[in-house]
Amino acid sequence: MATKTSREIIRDGLWSNNPALVQVLGLCPLLAVTSTVVNALGLGLATLLVLMGSNLAVSLIRNFVNESVRLPAFVMIIASFVTCAELLMQAYTYELYQILGIFIPLIVTNCAILGRADAFASRNPPGLALLDGAMMGLGFLLVLVMLGAMRELIGQGTLFADMHLLLGPMAAEWTLRPFADYPNMLFMMLPPGAFMGLGLLIALKNVIDSRIEEKRKAAQVKTVSAGTKRVRVTGSLS
């Protein structure tokens, strides 16, 4: 298997192979906790921490683990980092930890994390494995935050409400209310609204990809046409 370059790893994590929009993994927490930006950001940061730590650890031990115990070893590593993330949230963001509830320990079962450990970290050196974990985690975090912002804005007419639960007293006044007397839209705060919001994000990505591909093909056609014209001119001159 050819080793990916850093640029390819970054592009895959943030766009081409985004775990939420392309692989469609981790949907349970993605749809369950993204009712607000602060919830999405809290879970996203915890997932990012676990992905980076587990990818690095798996890469470091990849040459010392027997094939028969490979997956159990990966799960134990992931569970250890999830426990660290859980203890950190209990210590510093306890109220947010209570809101997120079971979805913090359930990071252990996130297929995106185990998938990256098995498909990439176990086959690549630590530096690339850490970068892959960071980019995949960041890509997942960005989708969480975008979906959370969409649902919070449409659902209750606010943005960045209760950010002090994650960032402390300095974020207590960060709440934005773009609309006066906004009538709450309960649909967007419920699971059906989460499904619709994620579907819109996936559709938007597909539209952007289609237009990029069309432009690429058009550029190729122009290049071929220009080359053909140069050949014809050269032939006529000779």
Rank of each mutant, 00 (worst) to 15 (best):
V22H: 10
N17R: 13
A57S: 13
M89S: 04
T223S: 13
G44C: 05
R230N: 10
R177H: 15
V221Y: 13
M150D: 01
T228V: 00
L138Y: 05
V37H: 04
E173R: 11
L142A: 03
V82D: 03
L27N: 08
R232H: 04
P191W: 07
I10Y: 01
M170W: 10
L159E: 05
A218F: 04
N18E: 00
F81Y: 08
T83M: 06
A121H: 04
P192G: 07
V38F: 07
A172R: 13
G235A: 09
G44F: 02
A119C: 11
G137L: 09
G193N: 11
S238Y: 02
A149Y: 03
V108E: 02
R151N: 01
V33Q: 04
I99A: 09
L49F: 11
G227H: 00
G139Q: 07
I104E: 02
L71C: 00
M188A: 14
V207Y: 08
G44L: 03
K215S: 12
R230E: 12
V37E: 05
Y182F: 14
E213L: 13
K222G: 14
S6M: 08
A149F: 09
D209W: 12
R232F: 08
N184E: 13
I107G: 00
M76I: 05
L153R: 00
R177E: 14
L43C: 01
A172Q: 14
E8W: 06
